[in-house]
Design a binder for these strands. Structure first.
Lengths: 211, 211
DNA sequence: CGAGGATCTGAGCAAAGGCTCATCTTCTCC
DNA sequence: GGAGAAGATGAGCCTTTGCTCAGATCCTCG
């Protein structure tokens, strides 16, 4: 797994060689993520980040070409974390019967978003429009994954697995994001999980080939 | 139907008396909305807005206490427009049979978002975190409206109409917003409309009292 | 130990943008 | 017609912020 300050375009900077440098980079990224999560994108100025990380701005710019690069790195780490949680919560799901599998899926999606709700939201804001490729790519990947999983289950007999996957993933994602923004505590509400379950099962049932 | 530069807190400014003033205010708001929609929140600087509106910054600040007030006014107008479109697209829906009603609903929701997709997205970004009360209030209102509509239809026999409404409204909203961001042209895809229909019908069916 | 690379420092430059104010122009209305 | 209110102007102040640079300090390793 690559680690630090690499960009695709033309934005490189020194990569840490000594462990001291690595620690510094981590401190910077974590400080930035914290500010982002607690006070939003506007508060995450490079100077503020450096201060919170306990390093000088000079040091920050030693590892990141510019503010944008820092944000992208945060996005990359966040996505990796979400992916890990998702994968973990989904292992062995193929062996389960449909209702149980759906329960698992709901739990997994919720868990994935619970990793860092505020940060997730902040990233969706700050990266939007420009380079939220990382997050987008992840979401696209999830849609593909779900699509394939749906195809595999013959019992479902969907007429358009991809479409169904798209609707489900984007719908659930939006639902959860909205809920996080407006009623964060509600994520733990079992009733909501049940409602999501109903939505998924209902959508699947209604999307059968001979519906 | 108040009109222009009124805030709740402590941010007032002259309200236009002469029609000239009203025209100026409209020009400013429209210019700002245009920039917001085309180039995003970052590009919507007060100077840029004034320039595009063909007035001086001084004039802009004659009617708006600060940039934020301007954004809020845009939000207010946008929400009003969406509300109008929604109401229009939904008239007489109570008399329709369920499948037809759902089709109408899907069309209405899509139409509502098509009013100004880019602006809608930009507002969600720029207002987020601080004062997007206006948009939030609207969304809450829509949830309430849908909840009541669901309750009315005895045929549905929902166990938790409110929950179902929440899930449907937030889910569909998120689905549409994500689609607008990633594949704007797809909003016109009839297959997507069908998929949304399936999602709604399925969710309703699966949310019955004795499910 | 000491050379040389890695790391870190922070004052401050330059750009950008929000917003003010002193002043001028246009309307309204008696 | 003209007084006074409404409307408009725009140079520029002031603050914020991204980012640079000339060095200082710390580490590694022969």
């Amino acid at each position: 797994m690559a680690t630090t300050a690499r960009k695709k375009p033309v934005k490189r900077r020194r990569s840490p060689i000594q462990s001291r440098g690595q620690a510094t980079v981590d401190a910077i990224v974590e400080a930035a993520a914290q500010i982002l999560a607690r006070k939003g994108p506007a508060a995450a100025t490079t100077n503020a980040v450096a201060a919170r990380a306990g390093v000088s701005i000079g040091t920050l710019y030693q590892y990141f070409a510019d503010r944008e690069a820092l944000l992208q790195e945060i996005g990359r780490r966040h996505v990796a974390e979400m992916q890990a949680v998702l994968a973990g919560a989904l292992t062995g799901i193929d062996g389960l019967a449909l209702p149980a599998a759906v329960d698992r899926l709901v739990a997994a999606i919720v868990a994935m978003h619970r990793v860092a709700p505020r940060l997730h939201q902040a990233l969706h804001q700050s990266l939007a429009r420009d380079h939220l490729d990382t997050i987008d790519a992840f979401e696209v990947a999830v849609e593909g994954m779900v699509s394939r999983a749906l195809e595999t289950r013959d019992e479902l007999d969907l007429s358009h697995p991809e479409l169904t996957a798209t609707v489900l993933v984007r719908g659930l994602g939006g639902l959860i994001r909205t809920t996080i923004r407006r009623e964060p505590e509600r994520l733990d509400d079992p009733a909501l999980a049940l409602a999501m379950r109903a939505m998924i099962l209902g959508t699947l049932g209604e999307s059968r080939r001979r519906a």
